[in-house]
Amino acid sequence: MTGAAADLDGPRVRPPVHRWLWYALGGGLPARHRSWVLHDTTTGSWGARHVARSLVQMAIPSALVLAFVPSGWALRLAVVGGGVFLGMIFSLAYMAETTEHRVIKAGYRPGTAVSMRERASIVAQRRESERKRAAAAKRAARYRERTGG
């Protein structure tokens, strides 16, 4: 799957830190990062990447609350913790839609990220089935050797 994205759009160019921060905050990336956006939203760790982007988005309001709310640290930390908790609930609830929107913004057709993740899942399931089938065949062969059958 990762090679397929690179084959479709040329080499995958990772954005520099300042552009990634802009991307994590919801901004678009230049066209040369198009295949990287597809990789970012379809690789095996796409869920963890989404969570990391969400935490970056919540870092700014959290820092502002910690710095400027006129109360004790316990209340500030409780407010930030509650905000991050609720923010993560919403972020996880709309994870597929958010990543799909990023892919559309990069210039791909709607449904591209979902279909690539589904294809990768099918390939992984086939590999796992083959591995289990081979392991079962080995166990059966060992059993036949032990029992003489």
Rank of each mutant, 00 (worst) to 15 (best):
L25T: 09
Y23I: 06
A48R: 12
A31F: 07
A106Q: 01
H39T: 06
P15I: 01
L77G: 05
A106F: 01
W36T: 01
V51G: 02
A106W: 03
T147A: 14
T147H: 15
E100D: 12
V56D: 01
D40E: 02
W46R: 04
A5Q: 11
A5I: 06
I104E: 11
G26Q: 02
L55E: 08
H101S: 13
R53W: 01
G26K: 03
I89R: 14
G27N: 04
V79Q: 07
G26H: 02
K132Q: 15
E128N: 11
P110N: 10
Q57S: 05
G148V: 06
R146T: 10
F85Q: 12
H101R: 15
G27F: 06
A67L: 14
Y94P: 00
G111Q: 08
G26V: 09
L64M: 12
Q125M: 14
H50M: 07
R139M: 00
M58A: 08
G10P: 03
R109A: 15
A48E: 07
G81I: 04
G44T: 13
G44N: 11
R109M: 09
L86Y: 13
L55Q: 05
L77N: 05
R34N: 01
E130R: 15
H18A: 13
T98M: 09
A6V: 04
A135Y: 05
H50E: 03
P15Y: 00
T147S: 15
L21C: 12
R117M: 08
V80L: 11
A134P: 00
E118F: 14
G83A: 12
Y23V: 07
A63P: 05
V79P: 04
K138Y: 05
G3P: 03
K105W: 07
V79G: 01
A140I: 06
F68Q: 07
A67P: 12
T41Q: 06
R53D: 02
R139P: 00
R102C: 03
S121V: 02
L21I: 15
R144M: 10
A4I: 07
T147M: 14
H18G: 12
G26D: 02
L75C: 07
H101W: 15
T112W: 08
P30Y: 11
A137F: 04
L21P: 02
R12F: 01
A6G: 09
F68D: 04
P30G: 08
G72R: 11
Q125L: 14
H50T: 01
E130A: 15
M116R: 15
Y23F: 15
R142D: 15
H33Y: 10
P11Q: 10
K105V: 15
A96K: 10
V69A: 08
Y23E: 01
P110R: 08
E118D: 14
S35Y: 05
A137H: 10
G111M: 04
G82A: 12
A59T: 03
S71E: 08
G27Q: 03
R76N: 07
Y108L: 01
V80C: 11
W36N: 04
G87S: 04
P15K: 02
E100G: 04
